Amino acid sequence: MDVLAEKMIESLTQWNIETKMSTITVDNCSSNDGMIRLVQEKLSNELLLQGKFLHMRCCAHILNLIVKDGLFVIEGSIETIRDSVSFWSASPSRMEKFEDVARQLKISCTKKLALDCKTRWNSTNLMLQTALEYKDVFPRLKLREKAYCTLPT
């Protein structure tokens, strides 16, 4: 945090904006809290309103933390769906079998199963939305494919 504060102050003064800045938005980690505190201490006389409102926490980061906590509660279910999506999208022949069963059940195959990136909750959301559209396909495939053993419930 000392190095971050030093570099922040150096950059602000180099650009001559330390007296024009009202806030700094950072994510919620303790080193950023400390960095902002040090910047406020060193520049308090030059900051707008003596830096009272300098530290703004990033709303997107807060939202991300909330969603990750929520997803953690259902992680077991997500893993089962992830395993199913991985199994059926592993090869063109499996994908074809998946789409055939979907068509037999009169389910439109406009969306492809897509495996998520575990660190990006928006991709997990997309994977879950798509899998939900095919929820009736998975049990039918379980009856036809002995190697398929991770049926979502």
Rank of each mutant, 00 (worst) to 15 (best):
L4S: 10
L4A: 12
L4D: 05
K7M: 09
I9A: 05
I9L: 01
E10G: 02
E10T: 05
S11K: 03
S11E: 09
S11H: 04
T13K: 14
Q14V: 00
E18S: 04
M21G: 02
T23C: 14
D27N: 07
N28D: 09
S30I: 07
S31W: 04
G34H: 08
G34A: 12
M35N: 11
M35S: 13
I36G: 01
I36T: 02
L38P: 01
K42G: 05
S44I: 10
N45H: 11
N45D: 15
L48G: 00
L48A: 04
L48M: 12
Q50T: 09
Q50P: 01
K52A: 15
K52D: 15
F53S: 05
R57I: 04
C58W: 11
A60E: 05
I62G: 08
L63N: 05
I66A: 13
I74N: 05
E75Q: 11
G76T: 10
S77D: 14
I78C: 04
I78N: 01
E79V: 02
T80W: 00
R82P: 09
D83T: 06
S84C: 15
V85Y: 09
V85K: 08
S86D: 06
S86E: 08
F87R: 05
A90L: 00
P92L: 00
S93V: 03
R94Y: 01
E96D: 06
E96Q: 00
F98Y: 03
E99L: 00
D100K: 01
R103Y: 01
L105E: 14
K106R: 11
I107G: 06
I107K: 11
S108I: 02
S108N: 12
A114H: 03
C117Y: 05
C117V: 15
K118C: 07
W121N: 04
W121I: 02
N122T: 03
N122S: 09
L126N: 10
L126V: 03
Q129L: 14
A131S: 13
L132A: 14
Y134P: 08
V137P: 06
F138E: 14
P139N: 10
L141K: 02
L143N: 12
R144K: 15
E145V: 15
E145N: 12
A147G: 08
L151N: 08
P152D: 11
T153D: 14
